[in-house]
Nucleic acid binder design. Structure first.
Length: 484
RNA sequence: GGCCCCAUCGUCUAGCGGUUAGGACAUCGGCCUCUCACGCCGGUAACGGGGGUUCAAGUCCCCCUGGGGUCACCA
């Protein structure tokens, strides 16, 4: 098999859905692995729903995910243009071909006529669904092509259409279930299914990957390919991602837009990992780098059942990727999230870099990471009210002062030296670590939860550690009741 | 309702005729411990039901049940 040409054809209707991306992702991985091409095409033939802004969102989403396209908008390619709205001439041409060859016909039945037929169907059957329009124009050729009309495909009613789906196996659909679907609207815009076929055909697409909610479109499309005298591409219909309740994943279940995940502090590689692993497996391996995904992906291990979105697992995958990332790189990712909380630092900030090793085991997202880094990077910690009231109290003032003296007296400012110094004091004074840890922690971080005491000290450095301990002691002594 | 797809722990899954049915997340114990995490050790937990085929079925076939999708001049 020659190198695959895979396309992703989202429609610009708002945001890029994580489920749609997943289907595209498998195609992207496949193209990468096989040295093929990944083609981006914008399906903007629904004037009522498309917005220009959405097109930008698609680009931004894919770029953030690192899913680069070999052909498509902005990068160009031999099959330009890549917006359906700019390929109208082509659809017209192919529709005419089908009419000329007797595979399609002009139908002058208006919407009113259709609605009437539909109403009649409901009256007769008592059902809304299952309506199939029998156009009176099917066998007529006496219509006036200058008059308003749609182009309908003359669907066969006998026979079976079948294909070997890369994930579902052999699928057969009885032609008796087909109807004369519309190819072209009166305004000259094609319908999705037709535009899709014309584009895939003219662009030389060899593999179509999509959610299995599109499976219903495949048989009609194969019919169109055949009518056009062409061989259909391969199809891969992936099971969709469902919400935790088993329904189609939607906004009420979870964030569904790619950019939301960016904003929530996920790493793109983590998103890729989670999405791919949800429905595909490689033995017991759970965590994959991007390169591994490209190398290992195969269709055989794409599961055929739909998967449910699991936020907890996603967070776990995110955490794993956070921890696996070299700290200098990780720093680049956190900086924008720090800026969001008013902390302006550069990725080479020494304090940030020093803190990261102690922070990553405690964070699952970049937002959590930024939060955990907060007090290291401010001039003074922002005290949690409860923490301050519980631990920075008069009876802890002396403890903090003595701790300050011991830290000042440490031979070096290293984890070992600091620990030795504090241990010696505890022994002398017959104190337990428990008794001093929380007051010290709150004094230095403003919080009751942080990395180890000595770790915090080392990251802060001698000056700032002493400064904070002294300030904490003073605060404790003043015994100010903040709740008053 | 018609058509299409699907079915192993709560969730994602491994399994491709012979397994004490494995892993991960979650969950529950315990260890570690200056807090919170991380880490480590251990536990609970699954083949939807019924028929076949076979010496042998989670694995193959059929039916049922259940779930999902889709039935547009949307994509």
């Amino acid at each position: 098999m020659s190198a695959p040409r895979v396309r992703f054809a989202p429609s610009p209707t708002g945001y890029l859905h994580i489920g749609g991306v997943r289907a595209a992702l498998y195609g992207w991985l496949w193209a990468k692995q096989k040295g093929g091409e990944f083609i981006l095409r914008i399906e903007d033939t629904d004037q009522a729903r498309n917005t220009e802004e959405s097109v930008g969102i698609i680009f931004e989403s894919l770029r953030w995910l690192g899913m680069d396209w070999d052909e498509g908008p902005e990068v160009g390619g031999p099959n330009a243009p890549y917006f359906q709205s700019q390929r109208l001439e082509l659809y017209r041409e192919y529709a005419d071909k089908l009419i000329a060859s007797g595979h399609a016909y002009r139908c002058y039945a208006g919407k009113e006529e259709l609605a009437a037929a539909r109403a009649e169907h409901k009256l007769r059957t008592g059902q809304d669904h299952g309506f199939r329009f029998q156009s009176p124009w099917r066998e007529r050729t006496d219509g006036d092509a200058t008059q308003k009309h749609v182009v309908r495909f003359k669907a066969p009613s006998k026979g079976v259409i079948a294909w070997d789906d890369l994930v579902k196996g052999r699928i057969e659909v009885d032609n008796a279930t087909q109807q004369d679907f519309v190819l072209m609207r009166p305004n000259g815009l094609p319908l999705y299914s037709f535009g899709c076929v014309v584009d895939d055909l003219t662009m030389g697409v060899t593999l179509v990957t999509r959610g299995d909610d599109h499976m219903i479109n495949t048989a009609p499309q194969i019919l169109m390919y055949r009518a056009l005298g062409a061989e259909p591409p391969q199809f891969a219909h992936m099971p969709m991602v469902l919400g935790p309740d088993g329904k189609k994943l939607s906004k009420r279940h979870a964030a569904v837009s790619v950019l939301e995940y960016r904003d929530m502090g996920y790493l793109p590689d983590a998103v890729l990992n989670y999405l791919v692993r949800l429905g595909w497996s490689h033995g017991d391996q759970e965590i994959f780098t991007r390169a591994e995904l490209v190398e290992l992906f195969n269709w055989e291990h794409v599961g055929s059942g739909s998967g449910r979105y699991d936020q907890k697992k996603f967070l776990h995958v995110s955490a794993e990727h956070l921890r696996a990332l070299p700290h200098d790189e990780l720093a680049k990712w956190v900086v924008p999230f720090l800026a969001e909380r008013g902390i302006e630092v550069t990725p080479d900030d020494a304090t940030l870099l020093a803190a990261l090793p102690y922070l990553t085991p405690r964070a699952s997202t970049l937002i959590e990471l930024a939060d955990a880094a907060d007090y290291f990077l401010r001039d003074a910690p922002v005290f949690e009210d409860k923490a301050r009231r519980k631990f920075l109290i008069p009876e802890n003032a002396e403890t903090l002062r003595e701790l300050t003296r011991r830290i000042e007296g440490a031979s070096e400012f290293t984890l070992e030296a600091l620990e030795a110094s504090v241990k010696a004091w505890l022994e002398e004074a017959d104190l337990k670590m428990k008794q001093i840890a929380q007051p010290a922690r709150v004094a230095m971080s403003g919080r009751t939860r942080s990395p180890g005491l000595y770790e915090v000290m080392v990251v802060l450095g001698r000056e700032r550690t002493l400064e904070r301990l002294k300030a904490g002691a003073a605060l404790a002594e003043s015994g100010v009741d903040l709740s008053a």
